[in-house]
């Protein structure tokens, strides 16, 4: 039964993460900002609206948001929440996780291309370009963790990070944590990579791909974005908080607090950094890949 805590937590609290990020940005900028639960209201509002489809779009366009949400919801079943295991775990599920993340992105990209809009094609091209670099980086980071704990499944990996293992492998853990933080920003199109609040189609990456969606499908997209933020965030926080007491409530509370701190940190990063030029983004991801490659080589011997 305790296995279902992590997906339920994710389904309930994921939009709150977005709310905390937005509130942090507002406070740093000197505004009061929207209420923390605003993302929930947004989703509810979109769900009540009707849908408008372009005349040139086909069934691919309608499939995109649904497949995206479904693949991320499926990924929740294998992502552990710190020491709290996921409902499912089997050898090699970390590759399934990367596959599900990629499947969701693939569906979104197909839907964007289906509209025939040149802006959406441009956004799709950039999204795929950066994702192609981010995926091997994720594999390198997960391979390092697998090497440290000697397991090929996410739940045993994260349950294996007791305080002693953590201290023993501290340098590698720190490097992998930095990689995961960068990946969290890249995969979710947060600020040094993409500005989620931009209103200029030419500079958008993710936002431009979803311009044509409306109504419940837009709600799916927003909710799926929050889930993606949650999934990569829980990989990072589960690594940084080596709190494996075995007590269900203590671990859950520590993880939720960690997620909140992560959201504040992302908000602070977004407030203090400027966007990189698009040609600099691959170098940024390459930096992350270097960090995890160094961690892997350190831990290998």
């Amino acid at each position: 039964m305790s296995g279902f805590v992590s997906p339920v937590c994710a389904l309930i609290f994921a939009p709150l993460l977005v709310g905390i990020i937005n509130r942090t940005k507002a406070v740093v900028a000197g505004r009061r900002g929207p209420p923390l639960v605003q993302p929930y209201w947004d989703v509810a509002k979109y769900l009540q609206r009707g849908v408008v489809y372009g005349e040139v779009t086909s069934w691919l366009f309608r499939l995109g948001p649904v497949v995206n949400l479904a693949s991320l919801a499926a990924a929740l079943l294998i992502v552990p929440f710190g020491g709290l295991g996921a409902p499912l775990n089997f050898s090699g599920d970390l590759i399934v996780l990367a596959g599900l993340l990629a499947l969701g992105r693939f569906a979104t990209v197909l839907a964007a291309l289906d509209t025939g809009s040149s802006f959406e094609g441009m956004g799709a091209s950039r999204e795929v370009h950066f994702a192609a670099l981010a995926e091997p980086t994720l594999f390198l980071a997960l391979a390092t963790l697998a090497r440290v704990t000697g397991s090929f499944s996410l739940t045993p990996i994260y349950q294996g990070f007791t305080a002693t293992v953590w201290v023993h492998a501290l340098p590698a853990v720190v490097l992998v944590a930095m990689t995961l933080l960068i990946l969290e920003l890249v995969e979710n199109n947060r600020i040094p990579v993409d500005d989620p609040t931009t209103h200029l189609e030419l500079t958008m990456i993710h936002e431009v791909m979803v311009l044509d969606h409306s109504g419940p499908e837009l709600a799916f997209i927003h909710y799926a974005a929050a889930l993606r933020l949650w999934i990569l965030g829980s990989l990072l926080v589960g690594l940084v908080v080596p709190f494996r007491s075995g007590s269900f409530w203590l671990e859950g509370t520590a993880m939720l607090l960690g997620m909140a701190v992560l959201a504040v940190a992302i908000g602070a990063i977004e407030s203090t950094m400027a966007r990189y030029q698009l040609i600099r983004v691959p170098q940024f991801i390459l930096g992350a890949a270097t960090l995890s490659a160094v961690a892997f080589i350190i831990i290998l011997v």
Binding site: L170, P171, V174, L175, Q283, G287, T290, V294
Partner: peptide, 21 residues
């Protein structure tokens, strides 16, 4: 050993920073 491990990781990091700066 943990101290040396941390120094190693940070030292490698500074080297890569110098290579990439």
């Amino acid at each position: 050993l943990p101290f040396l491990g941390i120094i190693q990781a940070l030292g490698l990091l500074t080297s890569f920073a110098l290579l990439g700066t």
